[in-house]
Design a protein around this nucleic acid. Structure first.
Lengths: 220, 220
DNA sequence: CTCGTAAATATTGTATACAATCTTGTTGAC
DNA sequence: GTCAACAAGATTGTATACAATATTTACGAG
């Protein structure tokens, strides 16, 4: 556990991103305090930060829960994510350095391996690194930071998405097209491919959520 | 003053956006506490939120200051802002409703009036409302929120830019082109015009640096 | 048995007390 | 007079105590 109050912000972020804390899960202050071995004060400050970041929702006098955006908001978030990634791709295509190219290619082949094996968990992991490599290649540290933040926020949902049949293979082919465009310096194509790559995820996921809601309504 | 700890978050945001609190200004916890008539605890929580939002920088054991990004980061932020606004324009052109069109047109003429008088302060105010109208017209609440957040963060610097000679007139002509494109449903043109309107490059970059130096002299 | 009401309990929000760290001012050597 | 070391003061970080609100449980009327 890292030092200071800021330390467990990262820990909680990770718990949410990896699904150890599911959307809607309650975040009890005293439980968290005892878990981290501190008092409620620093825990509350961490929750405030997560709240400002949108990862957590604080309802006055009613406690904090992991944010669970409705399908509509989720679509909107994916729409913005798509645009941020498109922007990263556009800039990367224009500003690509040999170091970033190497980095992207390495992550691409790591993804390829995971896709071949067909393991969603390791693909999820490598996929994340691949996208991060593109953010970094934009040579815009602020954009990179914004993209990472939103990516984290969407992580819990992206994760489920990859379990859909055949998604790994399709995703990997899209990755290859993206890298081709970036390396060729074709900023328009890079932007277009990345936008599509992300948007599709959003659409598929909104469908998934909608069907889940329908199901639960039928059950209840 | 609004209720709860969240209340003075908005107050402080406003103080920073309007320049009552300049970049680099120190945010003393006890001063703020007595100003708002509360103890340090809720003040600290507010500062955490502002920190997560990027408006404030908290240095361990050394207090919080209003963020003052260096010129490079500022450029990067404007680059992202340009893309977000371009996206708003693109979506607005596709999804424009009569209500949003009316709203945008009203704000456009309010800007026109302020530009004619040549008052930077009232133009600043109306300009903000104009841009907000476009964010809203995107019909993507999450995008709107993101754009507003970044806009707030850039406010202290946008303000300076408007003091440059002739900027008001140029800005207003750009506004007209933007509205034309949106109303015509030309999403590509709307995106392009907004991107150009917001991005800082060429001589505007030099202007920005110059005004930054002026501002930092005030703080010190 | 069901529903509404109210007391009991639990949880969050705020204030205060104390500990840890930084900043400032003083003292003294050179 | 300048600089370093140290002490005094100020400020932030954390823990605890108390207040305000929400949730749960118990009870009684119908």
């Amino acid at each position: 556990m890292a030092k200071g109050a800021a330390g467990f912000v990262a820990t909680l972020e990770d718990d949410i991103a990896t699904g150890r804390l599911l959307p809607g899960a309650r975040l009890d202050e005293v439980s968290l305090a005892s878990r981290f071995g501190v008092s409620r004060t620093p825990v509350r400050e961490a929750l405030q930060q997560l709240s400002a970041q949108g990862l957590v929702e604080i309802r006055p006098y009613r406690g904090a829960i992991v944010s669970s955006p409705d399908p509509r908001k989720l679509m909107e978030m994916f729409e913005v994510m798509a645009e941020l990634e498109a922007m990263c791709g556009r800039l990367a295509a224009r500003r690509l350095t040999p170091e970033h190219e190497t980095n992207i290619r390495q992550n691409l082949s790591a993804c390829a391996q995971a896709a071949e094996i067909g393991d969603p968990d390791s693909y999820y992991f490598e996929n994340e690194r691949f996208h991060r490599a593109i953010y970094a290649a934009s040579a815009n540290a602020f954009l990179e930071e914004q993209a990472l933040t939103l990516h984290k926020r969407l992580s819990p949902f992206r994760r489920l998405q990859l379990r859909v049949r055949n998604r790994l293979g399709v995703s990997q082919r899209e990755h290859e097209a993206i890298v081709s465009a970036i390396v060729a310096g074709d900023s328009k194509a890079a932007a277009r491919e990345l936008r599509q790559h992300v948007i599709v995820q959003g659409e598929r996921f909104a469908d998934l959520i909608a069907s889940l809601e329908l199901q639960s309504r039928q059950t209840a």
